[in-house]
Amino acid sequence: MPAQITQHRPGLAILLKLLAVSMFVVTSALIKETADQVPPGEAVFFRSIFAIPVILVWLAARGKLRDGLVARNLRGHLARGVLGTTAMGLSFAGLAFLPLPEATAIGYATPIFTVILAAVMLGERIRLFRISAVALGLVGVMIMLWPRLGTSSALQDTATLGALLILAATICRSFVQIHIRQLVQTEDTAAVVFYFSCTATVLALLTAPFGWVMPSGHTLLLLVAVGLIGGIAQILVTSSYRFGPASMLAPFDYASLLAAIVIGYFWFSELPTLVMLAGALLVVAGNGLVIWRERQLGLMNAKARSVSYPKS
């Protein structure tokens, strides 16, 4: 949900984006650390409810508190909440069974699936260039998944379950991206951020009868940290788009893989495989081609508008 650029400060924009990306990886690591003690629904609850105070303080500081509390499309916010909460729950569940770098890399497929869904659901035209980029990305996804699916005993492997859960979360996030494109046409970005956290909190609370536990003091602190850090990361990534265009900042999303490799190694003693890195590289390449094409189209459209409407 890129915000409108208020100042062009690329250095600050990149710094904010990198901080946000790193903090999101930290929240994933914290969720992974608590996954064997806390069910995914309970983790989603803590991630959402403790992000709300952070978001409210941020909105108040920016003078956007009123905008953040105005919901013109309640049904749209609810649909976004259901999709986003489902994606978050699936992702948290998958982290329990999959190495952090691999879970991060599979998540890179979101833009690839978004392009496909945009064509199916929004009727967007996909030309040969983007079709090739999508195909490249999908090949990368299959390469990453193949070691989990390519053996006769794979279905009994918990890592296979983790990979499928992360993949399902990725597809759900693609639906979220499509829905947000429509939602922001009538809703303020602040409202989208705030009401998602509220909706996710309520929906996660509904999972309490299905096995919530009383966390230990240490686990409780980690869960609270997940919410606070996640809320701050959301603010940082939203703020980054105030100082630089989305096309410039998009490639820095992939810094999360480096962060995941470092954290995975030192925290969980995990190392990425060459097959996973090869697949991730193809997914990143496919996404990069889509980003480059979108940037080119944006420049061409801007040039056309400047020719059609010359300054007097």
Score class of each variant (00 low, 15 high):
255 A>V: 13
165 L>F: 11
224 V>Q: 04
241 Y>R: 04
35 A>H: 00
92 F>T: 00
79 A>G: 07
198 C>L: 15
214 M>W: 15
253 D>S: 05
50 F>P: 13
95 L>W: 03
166 I>W: 02
152 S>W: 14
213 V>I: 09
279 G>P: 00
57 V>I: 12
307 V>A: 14
226 V>D: 04
283 V>L: 08
272 P>D: 02
65 L>C: 03
230 G>M: 00
7 Q>Y: 15
192 V>A: 03
78 L>H: 01
39 P>D: 01
171 I>F: 15
182 Q>K: 09
22 S>T: 12
8 H>C: 07
134 V>S: 09
112 I>Q: 06
308 S>F: 13
201 T>G: 11
9 R>Q: 04
233 A>Y: 08
117 L>P: 01
149 L>W: 06
86 T>Y: 08
215 P>M: 02
104 T>L: 08
150 G>A: 10
119 A>C: 11
169 A>H: 04
226 V>Q: 07
97 F>N: 05
146 W>P: 05
268 F>M: 06
44 V>L: 04
215 P>E: 01
109 A>E: 06
52 I>W: 13
221 L>P: 08
239 S>R: 09
65 L>K: 06
234 Q>G: 05
100 L>F: 07
42 E>L: 07
17 K>E: 10
285 A>M: 14
273 T>S: 12
59 L>H: 04
224 V>D: 13
234 Q>A: 00
161 L>G: 13
229 I>W: 13
253 D>K: 08
158 T>H: 15
21 V>I: 10
266 F>H: 11
6 T>F: 12
250 A>T: 06
137 G>P: 02
79 A>M: 13
179 H>V: 11
159 A>M: 12
96 A>L: 03
129 F>D: 15
149 L>K: 00
249 L>C: 07
194 F>Q: 04
200 A>C: 11
153 S>P: 11
266 F>G: 05
104 T>R: 03
146 W>C: 07
312 S>N: 06
135 A>Y: 01
91 S>W: 15
247 S>L: 10
